[in-house]
Design a protein around this nucleic acid. Structure first.
Lengths: 145, 145
DNA sequence: TTTAGTTTTAGAATAATTCTTGATCTCAAG
DNA sequence: CTTGAGATCAAGAATTATTCTAAAACTAAA
């Protein structure tokens, strides 16, 4: 895990991959808003700054950035993968109504929340919540009893 | 949520969809082993009993069964969806080496493991663990220090 | 500079899933 | 019993996100 103070350059050097202009633009496109864009959305954002950029390169760059731990890939069901620059461990909430995705802080005691057989090595935990976000729930009189 | 004593017939009637022969074969193909088959694997299993069955119908049936709450769809990254007849709330572990998928019991205290904004309605929580299963970890001398 | 390895690009290919269409089935009303 | 509306099924086409391929461009080291 990269320490919070590490620069993106550091993280990539450590992983043995180069911080090319394309990778920098892709990373910046992801950092420029605190949302969870798809590869296509990242492509459209980054393309304004580097018109020669291709979608295949965006996929390559997102893979490279994910592999060196600078960003995270986020999946919900079989929808397009989304990408998240928040490296602090957290879960994700997906609103069924409006499609919004937001980070969900985790209680540090969550380590005890599951039991795996002895000898199992858990390297990554993914927590996805689905439901209705506060603003969508409000415009729905369904649960107002 | 269907009570544990409810038959599959009951669950489908309650949901207003019919328990057709195709849906029954698909459901039985899933129940016949305690694993997590893909739609294609379910198709191959069920086809031995009903050779006229088509893959599109298996997808339809799995959707119908998922919607009426008789089975669960399980996703890991962007791999094919898998299906799980275990209705007790639980997570899933995915082995990166051998691809095995198994159920992970959850600690009942997990409800407090995340914090969503006030007004958010969480209808479903998905917990996916990735790593190395016990038998793969054993054949790897990597963590033997 | 050569050279080997990495990266980018464009477009083709892949694969899981969904869609479309017409046939078939089911159930309830007449 | 018929009949008709709606649900379901099958086959294959279509979709779509993603990966692959091959050639060009780039980079860093010898």
């Amino acid at each position: 895990m990269p320490p919070q103070s590490e620069t993106s350059q550091d993280a990539m050097t450590r992983s043995g991959i180069r911080l090319t202009p394309q990778r920098r633009y892709v990373y910046e496109a992801l950092m420029e808003r605190r949302d969870h864009p798809t590869a296509l959305e990242v492509f459209l954002r980054a393309k304004t700054r580097m018109p020669s950029l291709s979608l295949a390169t965006v996929y390559n760059c997102l893979d490279a950035l994910t592999e060196c731990g600078l960003i995270r890939q986020v999946n919900c069901d079989r929808a397009s993968s989304r990408y998240c620059p928040n490296l602090i461990p957290h879960g994700h909430f997906f609103c069924k109504e409006c499609g919004v995705v937001f980070d969900v802080p985790l209680d540090p005691s969550r380590e005890t929340a599951w039991e795996v057989p002895a000898g199992t090595v858990v390297s990554h935990a993914e927590i996805n919540l689905r439901g209705t976000c506060a603003s969508c729930a409000q415009s729905h009189p369904t649960s107002t009893l």
